[in-house]
């Protein structure tokens, strides 16, 4: 049973406030912060959102998202870059569309297979997929170059991030907002409600006349499209892609981002990604030197401890903590009631 998942309307005032803040952020922060923290949090958030979308609305915790975004990233990089770093082979915009199409098709095909399994088996089969994609690109150097594909051409709209990271940031921001809104609207469509029905009671959905496997497959395809977007944006961010950037560690990182943020709300994806980017960049400075026991080199330990604390304090992640706090501040207008309300005897 999922903890308190429900269909939520988009909280417009909060969304507008966050987007406004993100829009003026370039005036307030350094170029380094803009790229390494904010831009990274936005595209990593999209990757985590594809995972959260499947988990929160479809009841499927997938570890395949990094595999799929790796396929999109590799497809884009290969299409724009002829072998040996010659001039762009394919127009970057065309390559982008092709990359998303490939990622979505692979997602649909793989989803069709994975949709038949549930729970831990679904987790395992999707993990296997990501590992497979990693080894494929590690070994087929014809597609991944030796040690990755470097200096990938970017679409004109992104500009040259080395000189000015602002256009890339704004593009990533707009795409992230569109992904958030798109998935939010989708969850309230006939299809989206059906997905949530499949999450709660697949047997009931079958008895009502729904094709549960088809629903799961299409949900997986949509999540693959979103993961593909993250993959292409990750290439914009790094201007390169290597097999090492889509390995098992990255699969785990995206899962951690989703869990830190909160597996049950889409907003959690970006909150988790921002937290992760901050910890990943600055934790080296925070860890004090204590003999041989602690030191800046132990920043991974700090990340692990923070992860444990967040998960133990709130299974709903940071979003869950925020919800609990706002519940305490506001006098509840309506009982949020994770427990059944007491019944009056009639």
């Amino acid at each position: 049973m999922n903890p308190t998942v429900s269909t939520r309307r988009i909280a417009w005032p909060a969304l507008i406030a966050v987007v406004a803040l993100a829009a003026i952020a370039p005036l307030l922060v350094s170029d380094f912060f803009l790229s390494a923290i904010l831009t990274k949090a936005l595209w990593l958030g999209i990757a985590a959102a594809s995972l959260i979308f499947l988990a929160a609305y479809g009841g499927m915790v997938s570890l395949a998202q990094v595999g799929i975004y790796g396929i999109a990233g590799m497809a884009y990089a290969n299409l724009v870059l002829a072998d040996g770093g010659a001039a762009a082979a394919v127009n970057p915009y065309l390559a982008l569309v092709a990359a998303l199409l490939i990622a979505t098709l692979v997602g649909l095909g793989f989803g069709w297979i994975a949709a038949r399994s549930e729970g831990i088996y679904f987790l395992m089969i999707t993990l296997a997929f990501s590992v497979l994609v990693y080894y494929f690109f590690s070994q087929v150097t014809g597609l991944s170059g030796f040690g990755g594909i470097n200096s990938v051409d970017l679409p004109g709209i992104v500009g040259s991030p080395e000189q000015d990271p602002l256009p890339r940031y704004l593009v990533t921001l707009v795409v992230a907002v569109l992904v958030f809104l798109g998935l939010g609207v989708l969850s309230r469509t006939a299809f989206g409600l059906g997905m949530q029905g499949v999450r709660d009671e697949p047997a009931r959905m079958r008895a009502l006349g729904f094709d549960v496997t088809l629903h799961r497959t299409l949900a997986f395809g949509i999540a693959a499209f979103v993961a593909g977007i993250a993959g292409v944006l990750s290439v914009f961010y790094n201007t390169r892609i290597t097999p090492g950037s889509i390995n098992l560690a990255q699969t785990i990182d995206v899962l951690i981002v989703a869990v830190i943020g909160g597996l049950y709300r889409l907003e959690g994806a970006w909150l988790g990604a921002l937290t992760y980017a901050l910890i990943d960049n600055y934790s080296r400075e925070w860890v004090p030197e204590v003999g041989n026991v602690l030191g800046p080199a132990r920043f991974n330990t700090l990340i692990g401890v923070l992860f444990l604390i967040i998960v133990l304090a709130s299974p709903g992640g940071l979003i869950g903590i925020a919800e609990q706090l706002s519940r305490k501040v506001k006098t509840p207008r309506r009982a949020p009631a994770p427990m059944p309300a007491p019944q009056t005897v009639d």
Binding site: S6, T7, Q196, D200, E201, R204
Partner: peptide, 10 residues
């Protein structure tokens, strides 16, 4: 076997 995370109307 109801959809616990959805409203009565949904």
């Amino acid at each position: 076997r109801l959809f616990a995370g959805l409203s009565v109307e949904d």
